[in-house]
Design a protein around this nucleic acid. Sequence first.
RNA 1: GGCGACAUAGCCAAGUGGUAAGGCAGAGGUCUGCAAAACCUCCACCCCCGGUUCGAAUCCGGGUGUCGCCUCCA
Length: 512
Amino acid sequence: MPLTLTNTLTRRQQPFIPNTPGQVTMYCCGVTVYDDCHLGHARSYLGWDVLRRYLRWRGYAVRYVQNFTDIDDKILNRARAEGTTMAMVSERYIQRYFEDMRRLNVLDADDYPWVTEHIGAIHELIGQLETKGYAYAAGGDVYYRVGQFADYGQLSGRSQSTLQAGASGRDLAATAKADPADFALWKGAKPDEPAWESPWGPGRPGWHIECSAMIRARLGATIDIHGGGGDLVFPHHENEIAQSQAASDKPLANYWLHNGMVTVNGEKMSKSLGNFTTIRDLLDGGWAEYPQPVDPMAVRLFVLQGHYRKPLDFTQAAIAASINGWQTLKAGLLFGDRHGAKLGWPAVAIQSSPQEPSQANPWVERFQTAMDDDLNTPGALAVLFELAKGLQREGNCLVHAGQTQASPDVLWPQWQTLVHLAQALGLEVTPEVDGDARAMGLDDGAMAADRSLTIAELIQQRQVARQQRDFATADDIRDRLAAMGIVVVDQPDGKVRWHRQQINDSEPNYCP
RNA sequence: GGCGACAUAGCCAAGUGGUAAGGCAGAGGUCUGCAAAACCUCCACCCCCGGUUCGAAUCCGGGUGUCGCCUCCA
């Protein structure tokens, strides 16, 4: 069974066949760097990250390019407001983009072209369009003649006759366009604006031309996959196609993929509506509806529990559910680290990257079937949850009863498969999280010894209280121990077992 | 007005003609002084109306509703 993807261009789900066998070229529209990224951006780039990881997992060599739009009115406005330059503003937010995305475990692209690096390539492309009759200069600007491109509207399903000019009240009189549907390739400089020299006079590129130029410069005339938010289908991607294909007479991209919007209370999350939550606010506890730091992996899980093409509703309840769900997956992923030694697994094997599971592995088969179906991550996650649930249960058995139900030989491939498949989705336990877990325990040797004495004494006292049936005191001591991160388990045989919460090397301890 | 999506339990969500995965939350029970863990049990007339079929959440037609785009937008 091949991987199939829903292609906006054909409006169908079709088998994915790259231009060059085994290799994939992929371009996704990046951010305009004038502010911090919000959850809508996270959803989009998380989605492309998973696509890219899955293509790799499927054995493809992927070349992934994502641009930064660093020339734009909004950047300019911000620069003016701050009394600085466009370059200063965009460089700051490019930096912050990387910080946010890396926390979400989004892999870096292979290449990040900037518009300011491609002014020459843009001139060249506009020049070709002009020569071929698709572009005309007017009033210092250069426009694309939409009527000249017969296939205009192929992506968005619009025909030129149905395009309603000025549908939203644009001021059409203020432009030198020959036709309202035409769009700017080059915008003549206004006073006090940054401008670049060009054959048509000083100015700056129109919005759409950058992607056409950068794709051609970095990946060639035809790429395999072009991705972006669903809100970019029209006019941005439609115009990219018009520009690129008019110039090259070749398809710009064979597969057009679009992700659904993030909504809040059923309404699109966007800058203009002001209903956005930034990634760093959410991760750092700055979201009013859930004012605690949210594990980045819980956010990733939240995003992957929906299908990438469908709208994703951002609510407090949904985030809370994902936080809980991540606890389960994490328990499964950490199973080997927490319990492997007790099960006799060699430390070297635990620490090395997971082995590729065998072909006949039914979990892998189900995972692949789901992912091959237009990246059905919710279905794929069901497989991970089944594995993680089982391992979590076994881990609890081990901690509370001293032994697992299944044999370690059976658990080993389950754990390896879980880690392997989770990695393909970018769900990984980060060292940072490990650090948190350790900090909750009692790590320092001297302190631990000292406190262990106290713990032993407390448990001793509690046992005495229990024997005297003074349960109020017994429960009080349980609470005190819990506050120290100590979980006390009374066993059926009368023994008391205790362990530290969330610590990797917690050997069970006994008190008589 | 035009174009395009989507509609499955309290919430998220799978399902692609053979009798409703999974997650989160919830209820009851066994065990326990309490707790923990484990185990067992319960929780969907698949938006509506027609049609095709032995059989439809799944296919077709018609409604209804929600969302996105047509203006910067992931």
